[in-house]
Amino acid sequence: MQLDTNYLQTKGRIFDIQKYSIHDGPGIRTIVFLKGCAFRCRWCCNPESQRYDIHPMTVNGEEKVIGRDVTVEEVMHEVLKDIAHYRRSGGGMTLSGGECLLQPQFASDLLFAAKQAGISTAIESTAFADFEMIEEKILPHLDLFLMDIKHMNAAKHKLFIGKSNEKVLANAKKIAERGQNLIIRVPVVPTFNDTEEEILEIARFARSLKGVKQLHLLPYHRMGQDKYDGLGREYLLKEIEPPTNLHMQQLLEVAKTTGLHVQIGG
């Protein structure tokens, strides 16, 4: 137990804070986007989140600096501005990224500070980190783990994401075993994982996790495409179309056969 307020001075690197998020956890939430990620998903809608270093990006023709170093206290000052809304809606703070687990102490202290303030905490994460760290630093202060599982096939995972999925799947099991409230989320990306077989395989895995009841299917969208230009990077998924509503509905029905509660969108 931390008895002093030193944790408020812990520094970390973020690239955005977004208020009135209503699709990432219960109630009205504020999302803190931490910078840096181990994955390089081709569809990533926040490509500016991937590198840990602070760098420029062109936004609407203007050069913008992406990333800033802040203390827990500074973040909480911003997050708690919406406390009236959390109180009424049961909402709170969600850490996203990037991958928040790559800044373990900062993430841990943010979550601790949020719990101290009496608001709900969630993380949106790939769980690509050491389980011991997650268990020690994150889970004690965490209400909801929104965990991405993108594919069950290790090779395909590595091809599209840059890393294999073994650690992710193993952590999912351990986190579930700990009794953590856990929701599995799948970005549905055409040419990558949008067949009925692939989705069903993920859903079966999710169903096998202890205590997991919900699966969210998040349809691929192109909202991040302009950012690749802004970063001077090539967008590799130019050719693919977002899945149709009909197709998403079919995938939903397939996933539902596992007995999970499945929804489209967060």
Binding site: G27, I28, A84, R88, S89
Partner: peptide
């Protein structure tokens, strides 16, 4: 959540 927003504004 929409209703919560109204209530929070009113709070």
């Amino acid at each position: 959540k929409f209703v919560a927003l109204i209530r929070a504004y009113f709070d």
